[in-house]
Design a binder for these strands. Structure first.
Lengths: 205, 205
DNA sequence: GACGCATCTATACTTTAGTATAGGTGACTA
DNA sequence: TAGTCACCTATACTAAAGTATAGATGCGTC
């Protein structure tokens, strides 16, 4: 029987998904409320086949949590689950070694399929996700942004300074200023705070 | 058998909660992905006992969706469900006539209790919710702010400059800077963007 | 009355943000 | 091949943000 560890900070979401998986399929589902608890639990067990991590959860810190989990348990398959993330996040996650990406917009039946898929050693990422809002709205204002500008905007959404962004993206501060200025113009806002608020409002990051 | 209509835009969350409720208790659970679909569905049926609305869902627009639902179906009980809302939102919801408030941090067992409670004609709101992050931080950080600092923060959340804030509050720009500096310290953040993002995350404005 | 506190203002300063202009590279394309 | 575009860097500047210190007012409390 496959052992699955589901980590999500919303008790209701976590428990019901766990209960669902255990009833409809022959899974043994353990749960945790944050990343640290999940990793701690795994250290005591060492027999988890699949770890499912909520993208927005204490301890995750973006994709850093994914990296930590993979480093601590290289043999275990890791899937990321999110209710808000867009295709970029999904791609980044897969790029950083995730075995699957599960948007919460998935149907329950598809979730089971996805899990089976990953357990069998395949990578899973739905290609039709984000049809509703995520992608549509992203199309409007944000489609004008270049790759670098998007990355810059992402950093703005954590409230970082130009200097910090420059360090993170490994470019000069002047360049960051250029990207910021250009994205402000493209988004039609007058400062970084408005840009961050706009992106947050559209659920981009 | 009580008929419940569960409206949430996350298929996964919605379907698993629905499945859970149907297996553990004698509920008949219908589902919808947004407010309009939910109301449309009810128009054709007119026998729903309890409508559960996700607070963050297309068509909700804050508590306006709650008002719309109650206006359209005065006889039906309505509960609000949210993964992020704080006590203030919960109180407002109850104030505007909601029959229950269900944080997603609730356990699955408590959810069933809550539903039974509401179906029996009682109002349900957990008094211990937000023990984890929501309330602790919301009460903690923002209660330290003075009236003026809160007003300043509100303006920050629209992305205004110090000069604009000064004009709106009818004080000098230096004073605004003082308020900003103080509230940054109190909130433990390092610039206005982070302050705005924090306040937005806590749904203060 | 003395004290604390929120409020406002002032001066003076450093740092960060944002604008402007110019130039270099590589990739892709008409 | 010439042109376009994303990208990066540089210099130089203005404007805005943030820090520090000091002093004034009013309000409520001990």
């Amino acid at each position: 029987m496959p052992n699955i560890l589901l980590a999500d900070d919303h008790d209701l979401v976590r428990d019901t998904i766990a209960a669902y998986l255990e009833t409809v399929e022959d899974f043994n589902v353990l749960t945790a409320a944050n990343l640290n608890d999940a990793l701690e639990l795994m250290r005591g067990l060492d027999l988890i086949d699949l770890l499912i991590l909520d993208y927005n959860m204490p301890g995750m810190n973006g994709l850093e949590g994914l990296t930590r989990a993979r480093a601590a348990f290289p043999a275990c398959k890791v899937a990321l689950m999110s209710g808000v993330a867009n295709r970029d996040v999904a791609n980044s996650a897969m790029g950083q070694g995730a075995d699957g990406f599960i948007p919460k917009s998935l149907t329950a039946a598809s979730l089971v399929n996805a899990i089976k898929f990953v357990l069998s050693g395949e990578k899973y990422m739905p290609f039709d996700f984000g049809t509703a809002r995520t992608e549509a709205k992203a199309g409007g204002e944000f489609s004008k942004l270049s790759a670098r500008e998007l990355q810059t905007l992402e950093q703005l959404c954590i409230g970082l300074s130009n200097k910090e962004i420059a360090r993170n993206l490994d470019i000069q501060e002047v360049t960051v200023k250029l990207h910021v200025k250009n994205l402000l113009t493209k988004l039609g806002v007058s400062n970084r705070t408005q840009a961050a608020l706009l992106a947050k409002e559209r659920h981009l990051f």
